[in-house]
Each structure stands twice: as structure tokens, then as C-alpha cells.
Design a binder for these strands. Structure first.
Lengths: 272, 272
DNA sequence: AAGTGGTCTAGACCACCCT
DNA sequence: GGGTGGTCTAGACCACTTT
């Protein structure tokens, strides 16, 4: 708590290599032990703030983990956790044997989160629903057969839905699903919620993961009519390939997201 | 190493609540202590593989951290690290007081990485260059003044560039930068590399972070001509607002990415 | 050789959930 | 109350970089 011996202060502040003044960090405050916010979160916020204020500069080295531990009265493991948050977020770069550096920021690239449609609607405070436009059993052919890795002619479920939110159609969805004889194919089930729930009772077909590809597109005539827009307007196309256990491909399809209603913000340097 | 007392085996395998068979995990192999791959990475791979094979099922609970530690001969902290990787990746959901569960996968949402243009070109194995279309000093007005938070009339640098890769124009870039009297504004400097380097010698203006927004758009007539495409074709628009220390806004602009050459794949459930 | 980050341990205490 | 995950410590050894 009190002032440290001069030897330590020198170790921290005597750097003149343009890297940092360790003392600046302490001015941002210490760790509040009584707080409900964990120490590692507090420290990572202090470090973030130091970068934001220019106390720690891009390209510069931050104090070592042991130094930070001494400055803030934390164990090295706790310091590491704080630093790891920022390394994961892309704000810091840890180089073994050398030190941890403030990253020179990339200004034209970043991480984007494309949320699940129903979650997105809920987080916007609205309600969402799905209007079933059509379902039928079709024989596999062309790209659907290829993407799902099944023989041509195998039976698939094909469905189209319109996902609505805020009283408007926002997303147009087309999907091919593996068809199983024991599958009920209840049309009533498809009105709401994610299609993947259709497989809920079929462990063999239960979705485990999905691969997504986000592309730019323009609305076709039919799509525009369904979405209440004009043909030629910009939109996102989110192609999805859904896998069950054993890498069995169970769904292939795509969503068309209205470009006038969807955009995505970067998560760059955000610490969760 | 050897067989455990029956009491422990029961604790692991006697679950009949449809959650998991702990024994299944061991069949995937143990931790190789001689390996250069850290134990926590090995364990996280084992857990991922277990999900992929259906040994651990979506919605089900995985063994507790202490159980995993006993099964694989690791300390709880190491187990936690392995589990944390998968929690961060969105594959597992840890609930305090209850347990850690395999996530019911979201099949229509995910994380996307939009790489920096020059990095992207390098990773594709090609070379990239930037062709300067124009630079001039302009008075701040309209949206640029608003976005940069400066008075109308303040001097800004306006520039347009065409970013090329694989011998083709791929990205069209327009930017407004804060102009500083001491700034050289060397046109030769702008031919290559990121614009942010223009500020390299000006610590006050050095970029620290950026906010990005990814939108869908269609090529305008001028954009199409520059990019060698037709007007009305789909494209991405990446708007960027770049901050220096103290939240000073130093760059505002946007990149138009050809829709026929760019698409983004999800990182969902990938463990770095 | 000294200092750095990378990994790992064997404890500890806590808040929380379930029964 | 017992089990779970969440946090934290004070060590240890290692690989690596720098001088």
C-alpha cells in the first residue's frame, strides 16, 4: 500500500527506451479488494484505459508480469489472466522471452458477430416469428446433394420461411434437410424457432456445429417481393452447412438478410 | 494410471440421466506428457472430439472439473484452462453451481473475421499494392465533420485509393484524415501500406483503435468502373472510424470490397 | 546469465445451484 | 449440505529472447 523502496521504483520508472512510464499506470488507480469485480478484470480495464489515454503506446512494451504483480499487489497468475484477456482481444501481443507489447492497431479489419436471428430480435426488444412459405419432400439433386454429401435421389426436406420482426419481413430462408422416415414433418412445428429443433428427438441428426459463409448479394425479383423491397437492393447472404455428430451433414441452406436492416459492428478490442 | 477404486468409477459412469458416459472420454486417449502440445490443449481437443463423435451431446453435462482432473491426471487449474478454451469458443456453457454443458448449437449465427486487406493478400499468397487516385486538403463539412467531431471548415486530408491484388483492383477506399500543419503529406508515402502509417511520427494522432461497421451495398457507376465490374453488382461496405489516444477521432472513411471476390467464413467453435 | 512469457501444481476460499 | 464453477495464491520448471 505505502510507498515502495526506491530500488523498485527505479526498476519500474527508469526505462527511457520510449516504452512506458510504469508510474503512469498507478495514477489510474489500484485494485479495489472489496469490489465484486474480480481483480483480473479490474487490472485489464486499467491496462485498457492506459492504452486509450496514451500512457501505454502502440508498439511499446508494457511492464512485465512480475512488475505488474508488484505494482498492483497481485500474484503473477492473476496478472497473466488480465493480460490474457487483452491478448485474446487483440490489444496486446505477448512475445515469449521478450515482453508484452501494445499492438499497432489494424484499422481496416476486425471481428464481427452475426447473431442468431431470433436472439437478435429479442435483444432489440422486439418479437420475432417465422412464416412458413412451403415444405415438401424432394429428391436430392445438384448442389444440395453435393453439399450434403448424399446420393442424387435421396429424399430431402425442402423448406422456405420468412422470418419476421418488428412487424416486417426481414429474412428469407431456404433450406434442405436430411429426411428420415421416422421423422414426423409436422408443419405446425416449423412456424416458430430454429429449424434445428426439428431434429431434437433424433440424436443421430442433432446439430452439433455449423459452418457459415457471409456473402454480399442483391435481391432477386422473388426475394424482393417477399421482403417488401425492390429487386436489385443490397443484401447479405448467409450460407450455412450444419453438421451432426460424426460430421454427418444434415442441413444446407441460406438466409437472405435485408441490407437496409442489417449491418454488423466490429468487436475489435472488446473484452468480454 | 491404474484402475481406480470402484467408488470413483461409479461417480463417473453411474450417471444415467442421459448426460454422458465419463468412460467414453477415456477411450479417446489420455494426455501425452512427453508431447510438446500443452496438456490443456490436448484436453480441449479430447473434449471437442467427444462432442464431434456424440460421446458428449448438446444439452448434456460434461464431467465436473474435479472429475476431469481425476480422469486425466491433471490439476483443476489445467482442466479449467482446457474447458475455458471451449467456453470462449462457444462450444461449452459453464454455469456456476450447476455444471458445464455442451451448447445447443446456433446454426444461423457466428463470429466472422474480416482481415486487413494487405494481410489477406499475403495470406492468399499474392502481392498487394495501392494505387493513389487522388489526395487533397479539403474543409470539413457534412458527415465527415460530424463523424470526426471537428468544426466545419477545419482542414482535412481527403484521399481515394484503389487496393489491388492478384493483378486486379479489389477494393476502393475513401478516407478523411485530420490534417496537421507539421504533416508532410507525402504522396509517395501513400502508394503502399496502410494509411495509418501516415501518422507514425505524430504520437498525438497515432491510431489506437478503430470501430468498424460492415454493410451490404451495390456498386455505383463510378465504383464499378474503377473496380472493373458492372454497376449494380453486390459488394461489402466497410465503414471505419479510427481513434487515437484520448478518443481523438483521426480517420473516417470506408472501403468498398468487391462482392465477387470477398466472402467471410465463420470462426464458430474454432479454438485458437 | 538474466529476464521474459508459457505451463502447471496443490492447495484455498467464495458464490451459487440443487436437493 | 454437498457439489459446482469462479477466483486467487505462491510457488515451480520450462523455452525463449536479449545482452
Amino acid at each position: 500500500m505505502g510507498r515502495s523502496p526506491s530500488s523498485m521504483m527505479e526498476a519500474v520508472t527508469a526505462r527511457e527506451d520510449g516504452v512506458l512510464a510504469g508510474r503512469g499506470l498507478e495514477e489510474l488507480g489500484g485494485i479495489d479488494e472489496g469490489s465484486y469485480i474480480p481483480a483480473y478484470v479490474q487490472l485489464s480495464r486499467i491496462l485498457q484505459e492506459a492504452v486509450r489515454r496514451g500512457i501505454l503506446r502502440p508498439g511499446g512494451r508494457i511492464p512485465s508480469e512480475s512488475e505488474l504483480g508488484r505494482i498492483f499487489g497481485l500474484s503473477r497468475m492473476t496478472v497473466r489472466r488480465a493480460v490474457s484477456l487483452l491478448v485474446d482481444a487483440g490489444l496486446l501481443d505477448a512475445r515469449q522471452g521478450s515482453g508484452t507489447y501494445v499492438v499497432n492497431p489494424r484499422t481496416d479489419g476486425g471481428l464481427f458477430l452475426v447473431p442468431d436471428f431470433h436472439e437478435e430480435m429479442l435483444s432489440r426488444g422486439g418479437t420475432s416469428s417465422a412464416r412458413l412459405l412451403g415444405v415438401r419432400v424432394v429428391p436430392a439433386a445438384g448442389r444440395a446433394a453435393e453439399k450434403l454429401g448424399v446420393k442424387r435421389g435421396r429424399r430431402l426436406i425442402y423448406l422456405e420461411r420468412l422470418l419476421e420482426g418488428e412487424g416486417e419481413p426481414l429474412v428469407y430462408e431456404r433450406k434442405y434437410l436430411l429426411y428420415d422416415k421416422s421423422q414426423p414433418l409436422l408443419e405446425g412445428e416449423l412456424g416458430h424457432g430454429p429449424v434445428s429443433e426439428l431434429f431434437a428427438g433424433h440424436p443421430r441428426y442433432a446439430p452439433v456445429r455449423s459452418e457459415l459463409e457471409l456473402k454480399a448479394t442483391v435481391l432477386g425479383k422473388g426475394e424482393a417481393a417477399l421482403l417488401g423491397r425492390e429487386a436489385g437492393e443490397p443484401a447479405f447472404c448467409l450460407e450455412q452447412l450444419v453438421f451432426a455428430a460424426n460430421d454427418l451433414r444434415v442441413i444446407w441452406g441460406w438466409l437472405i438478410l435485408r441490407g437496409d436492416r442489417f449491418s454488423f459492428r466490429s468487436l475489435q478490442a472488446e473484452v468480454r
